[in-house]
Simulated scan of single mutants.
Amino acid sequence: MAHKNFRKEDFVKDEGSDLYQVEFRKGNIGEGADLVVERQKEDGEYENLQAEIRRHNDRIFICWSEPFNGKVIFDE
Rank of each mutant, 00 (worst) to 15 (best):
residue 42 E to V: 03
residue 43 D to G: 04
residue 36 V to I: 14
residue 69 N to K: 12
residue 18 D to S: 11
residue 10 D to E: 08
residue 52 E to L: 15
residue 24 F to G: 03
residue 75 D to Q: 15
residue 52 E to T: 11
residue 21 Q to T: 14
residue 43 D to F: 05
residue 30 G to Q: 10
residue 3 H to S: 15
residue 58 D to Y: 12
residue 1 M to P: 10
residue 23 E to S: 11
residue 36 V to H: 02
residue 6 F to I: 05
residue 14 D to S: 06
residue 64 W to P: 04
residue 59 R to K: 01
residue 13 K to E: 04
residue 17 S to R: 05
residue 34 D to G: 13
residue 71 K to W: 00
residue 35 L to D: 05
residue 74 F to P: 06
residue 54 R to E: 08
residue 34 D to L: 09
residue 72 V to R: 10
residue 28 N to H: 07
residue 67 P to L: 00
residue 8 K to P: 00
residue 31 E to R: 04
residue 49 L to Q: 15
residue 62 I to G: 13
residue 17 S to H: 11
residue 19 L to A: 15
residue 12 V to A: 07
residue 1 M to S: 11
residue 50 Q to G: 03
residue 18 D to A: 06
residue 16 G to N: 15
residue 67 P to D: 05
residue 62 I to E: 11
residue 76 E to C: 03
residue 58 D to Q: 14
residue 33 A to L: 07
residue 62 I to W: 09
residue 41 K to A: 15
residue 23 E to Q: 08
residue 72 V to Y: 02
residue 6 F to M: 11
residue 59 R to D: 08
residue 32 G to P: 15
residue 9 E to Y: 03
residue 18 D to Y: 10
residue 28 N to W: 13
residue 4 K to N: 01
residue 1 M to C: 07
residue 14 D to G: 06
residue 64 W to Y: 12
residue 19 L to W: 10
residue 5 N to T: 04
residue 40 Q to S: 08
residue 65 S to I: 03
residue 50 Q to V: 13
residue 1 M to N: 10
residue 4 K to V: 08
residue 37 V to D: 08
residue 39 R to E: 12
